[in-house]
Design a binder for these strands. Structure first.
Lengths: 338, 338
DNA sequence: CTGTTAGCGCGTTCAA
DNA sequence: TTGAACGCGCTAACAG
């Protein structure tokens, strides 16, 4: 049924070693023989079996990707960056959703390792000791993608979430705002959650603004939770003049909520966030936000992984990509403070 | 370095065949021996090599997924459906972007087949003779996902794009609209493009509305192209009273464009589309749209594929999932016609 | 430049 | 209930 390298060898009148050579572009083959082999391959419709090759060579040219949720636009963007570079270096990717759930993450890591991936790209929630343990059971290179471990011992590619949040809030402060609320992600999430919250606090502290419990609500990154949080703020006797949302979606929720209350963005309340996903340009007013280069995070981490897999020496095992404030139309100076 | 089944056998004092049996849950093993083997596995930290297993068993428990672009929310949603079900049946997925480009699609199909996937899920542009040819070079089951082939010979899961578009336009007509414009995708695209265009025309024809060239613009599914098309419509001496967009994004572009002209949606112009992606609820007014169950398309097609891979008999090899009109706030009756 | 020979790690008969 | 032996399809020395 299936035609093997052996059939090709017979058909071409050479040994299987020779066929293997031409298939793998080994230069040590006489052009004429090469031609004969190619013809035999063509005639028989031979297709190399990558599994057999993987067993013999101990390389599968596939990398495992652990992702929280491919249906999330940000991660999907990262995934695209990963796949593009993987493709460029002739790797395939096995993608597994783990929803930032530790048990699922560990399980997935193990099956990926069973499949003998040549490398692992990990995007997830916190990187715990258990994770590190799981990584250690194998010696395929790992790179953390859009996350970091506490000790910073594992190669990683991410942005500085704390600084990004800081920059966003700082922008509000520069415009003259002093009463700034935040819609945060869960503080359990080290990057999107906790770090951004820290950036918010640092910016306030630096400006001598006292932190207020009432001005921080925890959302779940989604649109609806942005609305919920904003409702809360609007019902406060002393409303904030600006809102910093940890994600674009929550920011847009905030904008719509404010508008639904008959108020104007940014005249009455300014809104800023971090992400710069496509939807930040799909809202009125256009959303001012700090850009997170998701595609690049994916691309750079995959590139880093290829180097690691080829055992090339890498100078920087922990790369922090730059973020950038994208000024659009959702931020303005507060109304004349009374 | 790596511990093999053989090491476990020695450690447990049994043969490798026995180890293989316990690892694969073969019942023909004395509980006591099973225990010994498990202990040895634990002690040595043995992890089965899926590549070797794949070579020996001719099954890899991985399926290939050809997708246009994982960064596209709709496809990402499908992918999530696929992965969830795949995971449920203990399959892994190799994901490859092909951007609806035939050459890339064919190339990707081939490398996936080289990797000995147990099945293939194909999402792409048109399914040409060349595609069918490529599929035939192997006998792993294929299912088309969110696409169909002309002859309908390959198993597939999709919605009826023509009918979905028809229903959307019909809704406009029922509300009293007679001058309805369409922002279409490229007519080269059989499902999202051509079929929806056909549905639009059928609804018009059925209502005795004459088709107007000026009322159809071709977009690229994206927000900006929705804006562009709508600008064109608004500059017409005889503006349409309603716009049907082939995708949510273009519809939102239309809404914003209309609003930027100082007009009101739906009072001045109604907007409807097909998709019901998350963003359709992230706009003011809320977008009325025909829901396309992307997640389900992925889930159902993967489920179908598992049946095919197990050589179970399937009654329905061509399934059409239902679509549904989601009435929100972007459609209203036209202003009193003069 | 080409062929021979071993494995790669595991599933799977077939006997025992 | 267990073990011995073979083979899956290919790469990688090693000879020649």
């Amino acid at each position: 049924m299936t035609v093997t390298i052996y059939d090709v060898a017979r058909e071409a009148g050479v040994s299987m070693a020779t066929v293997s050579r031409v298939v793998n572009n080994n230069p040590n083959v006489k052009p004429q023989t090469r031609k004969k082999v190619y013809e035999a391959i063509e005639r028989l419709g031979y297709r190399p079996n990558a599994v057999a090759r993987g067993l013999a060579s101990k390389k599968t040219t596939t990398v495992g990707v652990v992702i929280p949720d491919i249906a999330n636009v940000n991660f999907a963007e990262v995934a695209r960056g990963i796949e593009d570079i993987a493709n460029m270096y002739h790797y395939n990717i096995i993608l597994s959703n783990a929803d930032k759930r530790k048990d699922k993450e560990i399980r997935v890591i193990n099956t990926l390792l069973e499949k003998q991936v040549d490398g692992l790209l990990f995007m997830g929630g916190a990187v715990t000791e258990e994770h590190v343990q799981a990584f250690r059971t194998s010696n395929v290179p790992i790179v953390l993608c859009a996350t970091t471990d506490e000790q910073g011992t594992i190669p990683s590619v991410d942005i500085d979430h704390e600084a990004a949040a800081y920059d966003a809030v700082k922008q509000l402060i520069v415009q003259g705002h002093r009463s700034i609320a935040m819609i945060s992600g869960t503080l359990q999430d080290p990057s999107n959650g906790f770090a951004r919250y820290q950036g918010y606090k640092r910016a306030l502290a630096e400006a001598g603004i006292t932190y207020e419990e009432n001005f921080v609500r925890i959302g779940n990154y989604k649109y609806e939770s942005g609305i919920e949080a904003t409702k809360y703020f609007l019902e406060l006797e002393a409303r904030p003049t600006a809102i910093f949302a940890a994600t674009d979606e929550m920011a847009i929720g905030a904008i719509h909520c404010i508008q639904d209350y008959g108020l104007n963005v940014p005249a009455d309340i300014s809104v800023i966030s971090v992400d710069n996903s496509r939807i930040s340009s799909m809202v009125r007013p256009l959303l001012t936000t700090v850009a997170q280069p998701m595609y690049d995070i994916g691309a750079v981490s995959m590139r880093l992984l290829t180097k690691l897999m080829k055992k090339e020496t890498v100078e920087q095992a922990k790369v922090t990509l730059p973020h950038e404030l994208i000024t659009r139309a959702s931020v303005a100076a507060p109304k004349a403070s009374k």
